[in-house]
Design a protein around this nucleic acid. Structure first.
Lengths: 332, 332
DNA sequence: CTCTATTGCAGAAACGTTTCTGCAATCGCT
DNA sequence: AGCGATTGCAGAAACGTTTCTGCAATAGAG
């Protein structure tokens, strides 16, 4: 740690009447020193309030143990996202800190990022966008990184992700009969977890002689959502999959407004889970993500990379499915 | 930024056939160099992917622009706290980043803290506890800090805080008649905002010939809360003040269970606000905190301190009161 | 009493920059 | 042609550590 006019090792050496080597050795317990000298130096150091400069240390050791934490723009920061975000940040930070590394909060903004003069040993990027310039920035600056979620346009890098494809596949198998046409409602920029979910949905459709049709909601306005609901239901869809919990809740309330009931008239499913889905007027089935585990694993991954592990470990975290009233089980 | 085997300024110098001085000058635009040399050096640097070492820079400049962000233990991390926490972190970070400083997430744990070798230029501590060892740590390590909320046992340091005392005073004046006995319900370790609120309540009591009685809830269990409610109401209190929004909601539901209505039977007030109070079965009056402004001001404060401002600026942020059904206005 | 081993410490290099100073070489004047 | 000013660059110090190497002085062995 450091600030202000610091007392340096040289000050201590002068005060104790020895060389800097001796001070360094005395304080670190190394070298060959009689106890008496050691104690004298230590007390002198204590008296002067000497603290070794972390920066100087870092210069020698080539690194200060700083790990960047870059979360994609809160942008349309939906409220429930906060919980997800907080969980990721908290757990990644705890893991890093327990290993002596310090998390640095980074902006998801390359201009801002490049004004920073932070010696990063590595970075964690949460939910990268397609062709994310932040990743490009890290590559150009030789900062090793690992992502939670993937930039699908960029291959061959380290990432971890929830296995939403498999999760949605299983959820659909459990809750939606064969030969059902399904509407998949998305919103906002395309993130990898949505692509994954779509893959899972399509896989399910192929296996059960069904079809998936994608609707993109312009915004979460009452009107836009209502429009999606109307057009989906007008076309005889038997199930609606929402990209995330917030959207699912919007859809549910738009359905209620129109007198459409889940699951009687249409089954409603959310790709992401949240407590709000449990306490909704009609509880909504979903896939339960595991942000805490994801964050911890990611942190351990970047730690290993920093400690010299060569590269890359792509990991899909298996997920639990949560079946609620809006799309009950069709088996048994 | 930095990692791996870096190419240094010396490599560039060798490649361009000049001295390190020339490279430094060429890249920074300083010194007296003909355009041709400058370009040659620049292209060589580009070719080698040279990035100056932030650590070496920091060594010279005595600082890397790192600011610690220390949030008190999520501990009994009540869900609504997450929003507050996230707001503080987000806004403080944005302000710091916009000034070229980087926020470092710190543990609220001195043991962990001391294992870190992070050269902090300053720190922000949110909601310090009484006699908080983290603050002691920073003082011993000569890290300048500023707190949001105060450690009341420690004087003479820089802090900012919501003016909860004045806020609660005004809220009580507006919503509780004179000569009303008030129960003030607290929970968990004593934080400065609670002490402030109590001061405000007591000031109100003196001015309106009323009394304040403190109840400490052991936990937010249904039973404990119910106990507090029963004993408060059995003793003829006309108003209950809850330390925070979550507690207020617990109290409200305990009251409902017992058939006690707000504001008819007792007026209910929360010291902290949250959206949940608005949408409660009986919307609850509260003081509206301003975490975003608080965080931004605090960040600006630490920035000034880092830039050399001598010390200390104690600031109380004036607050708005939000009057809802649970304790409606008594005037007009 | 001499020769080697050990002890107690100091000097210096290295980590990667920036910047101050200095020194040739060239240029412009008279 | 001679002189000062300018240009183009290099050397070295400084930032604060750690660690490798080296060198006296002392201790121990024969």
């Amino acid at each position: 740690m450091s600030t202000k006019r610091k007392t340096t090792i040289r000050d201590v050496a002068a005060a104790a009447g020895v060389s800097v080597t001796t001070v360094s050795d005395a304080l670190s317990g190394k070298g060959r020193l009689p106890e008496e000298t050691r104690r004298r130096v230590q007390s002198e150091a204590e008296k002067l309030g000497y603290r070794p400069s972390a920066i100087a240390l870092g210069l020698r050791e080539r690194g200060l143990g700083l790990v960047g934490l870059c979360i994609t723009p809160a942008g349309e920061a939906i409220l429930t996202d906060v919980g997800y975000w907080a969980t990721i940040v908290t757990h990644a930070s705890q893991t890093l800190l327990s290993e002596g590394l310090a998390p640095v909060l980074l902006p998801h903004n390359v201009d801002l990022l490049s004004t920073l003069k932070v010696p990063l040993d590595g970075a964690i990027v949460v939910d990268p966008l397609e062709g994310d310039p932040v990743l490009t920035f890290f590559e150009r600056n030789r900062v090793r990184y690992i992502t939670i979620g993937r930039d699908l346009t960029r291959d061959n890098r380290s990432w971890l992700d929830d296995d939403n494809a498999n999760g949605l596949l299983r959820l659909l198998q459990r809750t939606v009969p064969a030969r059902t046409n399904v509407a998949f409602v998305t919103i906002g920029p395309l993130k990898s977890y949505v692509v994954d979910a779509l893959n899972g949905a399509n896989q399910w459709a192929r296996g059960s002689d069904s079809s998936i049709r994608i609707f993109h909601a312009e915004s979460s306005d009452r009107a836009d959502i209502g429009h999606v609901v109307s057009s989906a239901l007008g076309q005889g869809f038997g199930a609606i999959v929402a990209q995330h919990d917030r959207l699912a809740l919007h859809l549910l309330s738009a359905m209620t407004e129109r007198g459409i009931e889940a699951p009687k008239d249409v089954r409603l499913i959310s790709v992401t889970d949240s407590p709000d889905l449990e306490s909704a007027s009609t509880p909504i089935s979903a896939i339960r993500q595991r942000p805490a585990q994801l964050a911890e694993l990611t942190a351990r991954g970047i730690i290993e990379m920093i400690r010299g592990k060569p590269d890359i470990e792509k990991t899909l975290l298996p997920l639990e499915i949560v079946i609620r009233k809006s799309a009950p089980s069709i088996v048994g």
